[in-house]
């Protein structure tokens, strides 16, 4: 990426729009906006080649703050609008900025089918585990027993894991990052931008108004390395402040083993981002039983929908109305 950076004629500022940003101070969305601007600048993608599509929710305001083509659509439908944009002009780098309510509740069907088709859009899911714009109701990722305005005695809705959903649908690129880890976010965004097909990136995003402590443990310097495992292709699944813990698979079940720093036993899993089964196992990791996986969990190549469509369309060539109307079934009157 470094060489791209030096070649790029853009700076992140070039991708900032004139529109004043209206998120609560300290919101995780700022980090995502800044990193998207940086990614576009680093990668040197011309402004006009980028289309950012969003639905409804705090995160969905993001397109207004980018100096690219943008479309702030309706609740849950951004992946469907983005599909139309991508098919109309496959040259565009199409991004969907969405939230947990937008993408997984009202828009679950569109997210599902975009992923199923492997359509070349980059879905950036800002997961704050709450409906924030409507001032605090349970979302599909809100944990059990959490008290919200729509669950005053505690939520009884089982939450689901966005990564499991995406991997279960054979999504070709699946990643998770923290809104506080800009380096990782940059790395993941660039990999997502270069990925053919659907990229699904979940961002653990703090909401100061409603879920401000939700992700605090990931920021705790003493604990965070024991809470998370950084997933990297070709590297062993090692974690812990002293890098003394690893993941092994025992009788199909993942387990944690401890070892001396620097002496990683051979049975520790070497992560393979092309292995769907491994990605699926990791996507089910929850603290405190297991460390929470962060990084690119899955990255495989598969023809994208727009590629397959283009092949079919090219095969057929161009068709004119005259050819169709004068084809079989026509007769002449004199």
């Amino acid at each position: 990426m470094d060489n791209l950076k030096t070649k790029s004629k853009y700076t992140p500022k070039d991708f900032a729009s004139k529109c004043p940003v209206k998120w609560c101070p300290g919101c995780g969305d700022f980090a995502v906006l800044a990193q998207m601007q940086r990614t576009f600048a680093n990668m040197g993608i011309p402004h006009e080649k980028i289309a950012v599509i969003s639905g409804i929710g705090c995160s969905s305001r993001l397109p207004y703050y980018l100096n690219t083509y943008g479309f702030h659509t309706i609740h849950g439908r951004a992946p469907a609008v983005a599909a139309g944009v991508k098919l109309a002009n496959p040259e565009l780098s199409v991004w969907v900025v969405t939230g947990d309510g937008d993408a997984l509740s009202i828009g679950g069907n569109h997210t599902l089918h975009a992923i199923r088709r492997n359509i070349g859009i980059k879905i950036i899911l800002l997961n704050n585990r709450i409906y924030a714009l409507t001032k605090g109701q349970t979302s599909p990722t809100t944990k059990m027993n959490v008290i919200t305005k729509s669950s005053p005695s505690g939520s009884i809705d089982y939450p689901f894991t966005p990564l499991r959903f995406a991997i279960g649908l054979d999504c070709t690129f699946v990643a998770r990052v923290l809104d506080t880890d800009m380096t990782m976010m940059g790395h993941v965004f660039e990999a997502a931008a270069q990925h053919k097909g659907t990229a699904f990136v979940e961002i653990f995003q703090r909401c100061l108004a409603f879920t401000n402590v939700e992700f605090d443990h990931f920021k705790n310097k003493d604990k965070k390395d024991d809470i998370m495992v950084h997933v990297e292709h070709g590297k062993p699944l090692v974690f812990g402040k002293n890098k003394d813990k690893g993941i092994v698979i025992n009788n199909y079940r993942p387990e944690i083993i401890k070892f001396q720093h620097g002496k990683v036993p051979p049975e520790v899993v070497i992560y393979d981002e092309t292995n769907t089964e491994m990605a699926y196992v990791l996507s089910g990791f929850f603290y405190p039983d297991m460390p929470v996986p962060i990084g690119i969990l899955k990255n495989v190549e598969k023809p994208s929908y727009e590629e397959l469509l283009k092949n079919k369309e090219d095969e057929a060539g161009s068709i004119s109305l005259k050819e169709i109307l004068e084809g079989p079934g026509v007769w002449e009157m004199n």
Binding site: A51, I53, Y69, F71, T73, I74, R77, A80, V81, A82, A83, G84, V85, K86, L87, A88, N89, L92, N109, H110, L112, H113, L309, K312, E313, D314, A316, G317, S318, I319, I324
Partner: peptide, 27 residues
């Protein structure tokens, strides 16, 4: 008649059929 000049997209539902058409018009 799907061809270089005709894109046909069977969407996942009526809403997506409409939404994708709006997206295509935007592009």
């Amino acid at each position: 008649y799907r061809s270089k000049n005709i894109t046909v997209f069977q969407a996942e539902d009526e809403i997506a059929a409409m939404a994708s058409s709006i997206g295509a018009s935007f592009a």
